[in-house]
Design a protein around this nucleic acid. Sequence first.
DNA 1: CGCGTTTGACCTGCGC
DNA 2: GCGCAGGTCAAACGCG
Length: 188
Amino acid sequence: MEINNHPTLSLNSWIPASSNFAPNMVMNSLYDDTNSDRFVGFKREIGHFSTAELKDHALYNNAETELGLVAVNGETKASVGTGKKKAAEKKIRKPSRFAFQTRSIVDILDDGYRWRKYGQKSVKNKQFPRSYYRCTHHGCNVKKQVQRLCRDEGVVVTTYEGRHTHPVAKASDNFEQILNQMQIYPPL
DNA sequence: CGCGTTTGACCTGCGC
DNA sequence: GCGCAGGTCAAACGCG
């Protein structure tokens, strides 16, 4: 499969195709060349920016378990079927949620929206506290969590929950800025 | 004064 | 039912 040679394979980011955070994203399910029923991963494209993640990849499994990726291409995880259907069905009851990691010295990315911090909590077995933010736009209940990795304090995990009900607060190019901040690093 | 952060208390879900 | 951990609330406070 040609993605094995893809130069940006293994970006540790999770963004659903339907997210208005990345409205121009194209997301495809990948299947084994020799067995078209065997789902092996995802490929994401935003303009010239392209990433892929394999199902057997350790980071993929961590992201699925810890961050609750719920749907791709409009399909639920249950419908792409890996045997853990009940767990997947349980996950899809959660609100739309996705996460990505960036290498940054600051916790808060400038994603164009205004956020208000409403809590901070130390998490078991984590060196750094987790911060909780809500979108300040009236009627918009999007939340995000920010957690710095203990195994690599240069890496920040940002988890978004929900969809904005309003346009981005700042001028365009905000997503381009995030892509610039988003850094690819080898699998841990 | 308005808006955002801090932080301890409180709530809730889950495993035992 | 109990205890733990994660998530949220809200009063106090800081800053422009």
